[in-house]
Simulated scan of single mutants.
Amino acid sequence: MQNTYFFTGFPGFIASRLITRLVRRDESASFELLVHPSQLEKAQVAVRDLCAAGTGTPEQFVLIAGDITEQNLAIEDEYLDELEDRVTHVFHLAAIYDLAVPQDIAYRVNVIGTEQVGKFVRRLHNLQRMIYFSTAYVSGDRTGQILETELELGQGFKNHYESTKYEAERIVQQLREDLPVTIIRPGIVMGDSKTGETVKFDGPYFVMRFLDAFSQFPLPYVGASEARINLVPIDYIEAATVHLAHAGAEANGVFHLTDPYPYRAREVYERICQELVGKKPIFTLPAAMISSALSIGAFRRFVKVEKETIAYFSCRAEYDSTEAQRVLGAAGIQCPDFHSYIEKAVDYYKAHRNDPEKMILVR
């Protein structure tokens, strides 16, 4: 049977790159891409770009106008019947990833949207695999070792992004009871380890934006925490996801796509300083002081950094990835070391730091 891949989250960066890898693996595959009506024109351009780059032909891609938050994903009944027989793999990537997102928006997209996708998946007659993109940070404010088998342990959450992704994963965990489901929990995603390419300057890129604002002054460390920060390049996420989508029963479960050997946040910050502005920090400011400053809207907008980012540089969680390493290691898929790709990441940032499409609007 020909593979038919159903995606939410297109024309997003990760979805587009996953599709490229899937076409390389299976040139005869077809793609059913659920797209919000507001994104249809952008999606049409994205498909043309994929085909122009040699990723498939226009006939392999179908854009479906729909909405994950609506009943039956707002797909017409007649076409929904066709999908029930045709779809073999579902990749659910659509979500609100903004750390500063209001609760009502996050809940509608991340929780209700996942609930509706789950109902759709249950209708499929030839499902081989559902891949759900969660996050390692469903662990919330827990500290210490976090296992792939753990989820509901009474944790609190640093923001509405975390809490709604946690609620969404609870829904998908229920699907695991009788469906072939893979839950992906990435760490903080960086750009491509070989090219530096990324779609948005968020996460650790906020550090680069902060340094842009103060590069002419002596640079501080932010806090004295010994916490480690878990960064993973996008190409590792892609390679792991495509492998797991075709790995059969051993892919049933939850996988931390995290760095098994993460560096201290202080060391990561220092290396970014050296690569971006050519000097090391020479003194330390309390993290609470920076957090208070970022509570002031004018300062936050000046440095272009979200307040919620600071918490991830003092996160005391350690993400065990034993199962991911076991399954992926057998296929030769490993997370690249941070120091092997940070120069590429900074070079890409330097080349595109003024691109408005890559900027996160900080309010």
Rank of each mutant, 00 (worst) to 15 (best):
F7L: 08
S16T: 12
V23F: 02
F31T: 07
L33P: 15
P37M: 03
T55H: 07
P58E: 04
P58G: 00
L63Y: 08
D67T: 12
I68W: 02
Q71E: 02
N72T: 10
A74M: 12
Y79A: 00
D81E: 13
T88Y: 01
I96P: 15
V101I: 13
Y107R: 14
I112W: 00
L127P: 05
R129Q: 02
F133P: 09
A136P: 13
A136W: 13
T143V: 10
G144V: 14
E148Y: 01
T164P: 08
Y166Q: 02
I171E: 03
I183R: 05
P186A: 04
M190H: 11
G191F: 10
G191Y: 12
V199W: 09
G203T: 14
V207Y: 01
D212F: 02
A213S: 14
P218D: 02
L219I: 12
G223E: 12
D235E: 14
Y236S: 05
E238I: 15
H246A: 01
A249G: 01
E250F: 00
P262I: 10
R271E: 10
Q274F: 00
L276P: 13
G278L: 05
K279H: 05
I290C: 05
S295D: 11
I296A: 05
F313T: 15
D320P: 11
S321H: 09
T322P: 05
V327M: 05
G329Y: 03
G332H: 04
Q334S: 11
Y341I: 07
Y341M: 08
E343S: 03
A351M: 05
A351S: 10
R353C: 01
K358A: 00
